[in-house]
Design a protein around this nucleic acid. Structure first.
Lengths: 227, 227
DNA sequence: GAGTGTGAACGAATTCACAGCG
DNA sequence: CGCTGTGAATTCGTTCACACTC
């Protein structure tokens, strides 16, 4: 079953709400309650939840623990996710220091950069390796996804190295649209008949800032009257 | 004219591409070219661009400088945007150090926190003020939007303070759904008949990470049975 | 009665075909 | 002839009404 991407986003939200309910020892909830907290309609919640299965009780609602477990399963968060961070500048350091292990089974397994000034140093007990070692590292350790935190002008080239190394899932922090690597020359095609369905999710605060400007946009006057 | 939110996002992307073209002294482009770089269809680009006006030349394409200027105008990026950052922990510091002034006319005008350990210190020449000073600061300086970088459990309360202080546009970095402030008590309603259309844009790397897990989720799953 | 689950109606966004114009 | 601009067709997601079950 293919879940609409808008629904996937909301499932992440519902999961957070369920976590908080569980923290507050609330055992039971309903589509109306979830809708209120997620700022969507109860219709939407119920429709979304049909994608995770029938886990509600008519006239009653949902059991927090059950619904939480099922959403985790559907999202794949019960699996272990080995992550490398590529680009250990300011942002890479900040992300590396984030306690991602508290979020299900995500785990940083490697840090990479090309700058000789940071290669060899360590962050949170993990050494920063040179990008040239990435393919071997992936082959040896197995890596499920990469967080790409390089400057925007290097993002495309870095993404292509990731794919070459065998990483097909990228969380892209650079303010750029990553383009699929162009199967370098025809000879390479036969060499890699495997899947290269590259998946990219973007985290982009500059884009968010500009969208916000649009929605805030004052009625086309430089200095409007006060509020 | 109301622009679809998906189009607004893509306009930001097109703008970036136009900036890069201009940097490379490319004077001229086309919907096909933009589509390739933005990873959408040429149909999509042309449809999106109808929302900014008719600036193309049939048989020829678009002038980079003209299209760039018009998108900037439509997005409101020709206006000046005064920003405060609320929450000066690790993330707030990182954001405050980002050279946002290079991105059109966004400008940090104030930094706020509640922690006595950071209030009074400065970042990039700007002092960190206590949240209690926010309403007065907004009244004196005028503030267009806030970047909310507090811990998730404080995000809702902080957002309500922002709205009380007169800031209705929030770039929310916390992994939470912000709910509209519940017009505190009936007596307050008459006091503030003004607009309180709060606009929120979210920047949420944990959500992106979990969505990525879903799309990466392999059909050949290690453990667990299916239904 | 209360709240879930879902087929059907609706609406919004994307895709398309083609008219229009340099 | 080439590429833009746009109504029409289509696809996709949301809203709704209601049957169903506890």
């Amino acid at each position: 079953m293919t879940i609409p991407s808008a629904t996937v986003s909301r499932l992440v939200t519902y999961l957070r709400i369920l976590e908080e309910l569980e923290l507050n020892e609330v055992k039971h909830t309903s589509s109306g309650d979830l809708a209120e907290q997620a700022q969507v309609t109860a219709f939407q919640v119920r429709k979304d939840l049909t994608y995770v299965g029938r886990h509600g009780t008519r006239g009653k609602g949902y059991t927090v623990a059950v619904l939480k477990r099922e959403i985790i399963r559907v999202l794949g968060l019960n699996q272990r996710w080995k992550v490398v961070i590529v680009g250990m500048g300011r942002l890479g350091h900040a992300i590396a220091n984030f306690p991602v292990a508290t979020e299900y089974q995500f785990e940083y397994t490697g840090l990479f950069d090309v700058d000789p000034k940071v290669v060899g140093t360590a962050v949170g007990g993990l050494p920063i390796r040179h990008m040239s070692q990435l393919p071997q590292f992936v082959a040896e350790h197995g890596v499920d996804m990469a967080f790409l935190t390089v400057p925007p002008e290097r993002a495309q080239a870095a993404a292509e190295k990731l794919v070459e190394a065998g990483i097909y899932s990228i969380l892209n922090f650079a303010p750029t649209v990553l383009r699929p690597p162009q199967l370098q020359d025809e000879k390479e095609i036969s060499k890699t008949p495997e899947r290269h369905n590259v998946t990219v999710e973007n985290v982009d605060f500059l884009a968010g800032m500009k969208r916000l400007a649009y929605y805030t946009r004052k009625p086309d006057r430089p200095e409007a009257e006060d509020i």
